[in-house]
Amino acid sequence: MPDDALSDEAALWFARMRGPDAETERPAFEAWLTERAAHREAYNWIAEVFSLGRLVEIEPDPLPTVQPLPSRLLQAALVAALVLLMGVGGWAVLMHRPDSAVSMASQPVMSGRGLIITKVGQIRAVRLADGSRITLDTDSAVSFTYRRDIRRLELVRGRARFDVAHEGRPFVVAAGRGTVTAHGTVFDVGLAPGGAVTVRLLRGSVDVALPVSGIVRSSASATTRRLTPGQQVAFSTSILPPAQAVVTPDDRWPEGVLDCDGMALADLVARANRYTRTQIVLADPDLGRLKVSGAFRIDAPQLLADRVATVFGLHADAEGDARIVLERGSPTE
């Protein structure tokens, strides 16, 4: 993703080239486009965002009472107008800035269609118009379509927690090949890059359905499992296994906290590395077999590395912003 200034510039060119003065602007646009490779990359990124319906990046900070609209909100208005002209109306998209600590819970997403996105290192909560709340884990995306007869969502990637408001319309979440139908409940759904889906129930009840063949988005002609609190089910093929008790709860991930009870250090590091560009590296693979217990913040790599180093008598050496190496000290140390 390009930086904010460059993405703003590319978005404005994208708008101009779809406006009434496109031909007049074309020489200047082509000169800008060929000036730097970064310009082409930023323009292509904006075009991809539009093609996927990912329309705008909304600042979560509340608007001041007396102040001109910031450039990003002006861009949002311009983009919204373009979307209507392009016939893609009805989409509402939230892409959150990594440096913002303000929750989106106070900004409800209106009825219709939309796509909610988080970047690497972000955990964000969004309240929908019906009162349901969705919390997205790092690098995740959830689309939603609210109609009069159904609330239909899809986990596109990553992981999300759904806190479902009671009402008459069904609340159905599609993930991978299956669907999850909620009954006024709280549950987690995770979608791995290979297509494996894990559903964990925290409160209430859900029906997890998987079609015997083909990809469907309803429970018709599908194997169904009803979960009770404390159960989970994982699937990736046309076979839906029985529900099982959750052995290693991961209930506090929306807080950026991982509770470990004898977890291998390699697994802890792998989970933490999903939340940051700064990767923790084990200098010796044997270190990965060390067992870790306790509560750890997995969204703060330096803090995590320092704590692990203290517990096991290791060194945590930062190599710029790219990585932190955990290694054993010398024999004398």
Rank of each mutant, 00 (worst) to 15 (best):
P193A: 14
G194T: 14
G194C: 12
G194E: 14
G195N: 00
G195I: 04
G195W: 08
A196L: 05
A196N: 06
V197F: 08
V197R: 12
V197H: 10
V197N: 05
T198P: 03
T198N: 15
V199K: 02
R200S: 11
R200V: 04
R200W: 08
R200G: 06
L201R: 13
L202W: 05
R203D: 03
R203K: 14
G204Y: 14
G204C: 00
S205K: 01
V206G: 09
V208N: 06
V208S: 11
A209P: 00
A209I: 05
P211A: 09
P211R: 08
V212C: 12
V212L: 15
V212Y: 13
V212P: 07
S213Q: 02
G214H: 10
I215S: 02
V216W: 14
V216S: 15
V216D: 11
R217S: 13
S218N: 05
S218D: 08
S219P: 10
S219E: 10
A220E: 01
S221T: 02
S221P: 03
S221D: 15
A222C: 04
A222N: 11
A222R: 12
A222H: 11
T223H: 02
R225E: 03
R225A: 03
R226K: 03
L227A: 02
L227E: 05
L227M: 08
T228E: 14
T228P: 07
P229Y: 10
P229W: 06
P229V: 14
P229G: 03
G230H: 05
G230Q: 11
G230F: 08
Q231K: 01
Q231N: 07
Q232S: 13
Q232T: 01
Q232M: 09
A234Y: 01
A234H: 12
A234D: 09
F235V: 02
F235R: 07
F235T: 04
F235Q: 03
F235W: 12
S236F: 06
S236V: 09
S236T: 14
T237D: 09
T237A: 13
T237N: 10
S238N: 15
S238Y: 15
I239V: 15
I239K: 08
P241S: 11
P241M: 02
P242Y: 01
P242D: 10
P242F: 00
A243M: 00
Q244L: 06
Q244K: 10
Q244M: 07
Q244H: 03
A245W: 09
V246F: 07
V247R: 10
V247S: 13
T248W: 12
T248Y: 12
P249T: 13
P249N: 13
P249A: 04
P249H: 14
D250Q: 15
D250N: 15
D251R: 14
D251P: 07
R252G: 09
R252D: 08
W253C: 10
P254L: 00
P254W: 11
E255A: 10
E255C: 05
E255V: 00
G256Y: 06
V257F: 03
D259S: 12
C260G: 12
C260F: 05
C260T: 08
G262R: 09
G262W: 00
M263E: 11
M263W: 04
A264L: 11
L265N: 04
L265M: 12
L265K: 09
L265V: 10
A266W: 09
A266L: 06
D267I: 09
D267T: 13
L268M: 09
V269I: 15
V269A: 02
A270Y: 03
A270F: 06
